[in-house]
């Protein structure tokens, strides 16, 4: 069992060294940062737009900054964080490429997770003529906060094209790591990313 019921937290925590500076974009109520503060003694900051989540972060004892990610990270200095995390919200942001580049400007490494559109049951839904609705894509097409729909293969291609180094990829289904083809079997993808040519800090 993982703490707080989020299966990916333990895997993310494994990539974080004790005492690191961590920035969590779209941090929600601050649960991940709280987990990392308690487990790893990190110096964490969350970015969150929703006011109720901002208050929840404060209640969780997490530093939170109410910034709009669509405005980018321009106020954050180069290399000011060891890890910049974006957990399950990359698909909700319109400016995907600039944001990924900003994450790797501000942080030595980026940790990104997203629901994989290429997951087999999703493909089957499309094959049957309907948009997929699942645990990690719980919305109907007309009320989804997601604005980008992409697969693990799409994301790999983007990283290659943009000079973003994929240092690790883990795929999960039903909260468990999957073996074999991640793009077919993975419901959620979790990436550790770095700058091309830079030393891996993993």
């Amino acid at each position: 069992m993982t703490l707080y019921g989020r299966f990916d937290f333990d895997h993310i925590a494994r990539w974080i060294q004790p005492g690191e500076r961590v920035l969590d974009l779209g941090c929600g109520d601050g649960t991940l940062l709280k987990f990392l503060q308690q487990g790893k003694g990190i110096h964490g900051y969350g970015v969150e737009l929703d006011p109720d989540n901002v208050t929840a972060c404060i209640r969780n004892g997490v530093n939170v900054l109410q910034f709009d990610l669509e405005r980018g990270l321009q106020g954050f200095e180069d290399d000011s964080f060891d890890h910049v995390i974006m957990s399950l919200s990359l698909q909700t942001v319109r400016h995907t490429v600039p944001l990924l580049k900003e994450m790797l400007r501000v942080g030595h490494e980026a940790v990104v997770s997203f629901p994989n559109f290429g997951y087999q049951p999703h493909r089957e839904a499309i094959a049957a003529g309907r948009m997929p609705v699942s645990k990690h894509l719980p919305y109907q097409w007309y009320d989804s906060p997601n604005v980008r729909f992409f697969t693990i293969a799409d994301f790999d291609a983007l990283c290659a094209e943009q000079g973003i180094q994929v240092r690790e990829l883990l795929a999960f289904a039903n909260g468990q790591p999957v073996a074999g083809d991640p793009n077919l079997k993975g419901e959620v993808a979790l990436y550790r990313l770095g700058r091309q040519g830079a030393a891996s800090g993993g």
Binding site: R21, H43, Y45, P51, V54, C57, I58, N63, V64, L65, Q66, F67, G75, F76, E77, S80
Partner: peptide
């Protein structure tokens, strides 16, 4: 206010920032 926040971040201070509607 954001200027203050960024300067505090630079100095590693713990800071929370609310931009209220």
């Amino acid at each position: 206010s954001r200027e203050i926040v960024y300067a505090l971040l630079h100095n590693g201070r713990k800071v929370s920032y609310a931009e209220i509607d």
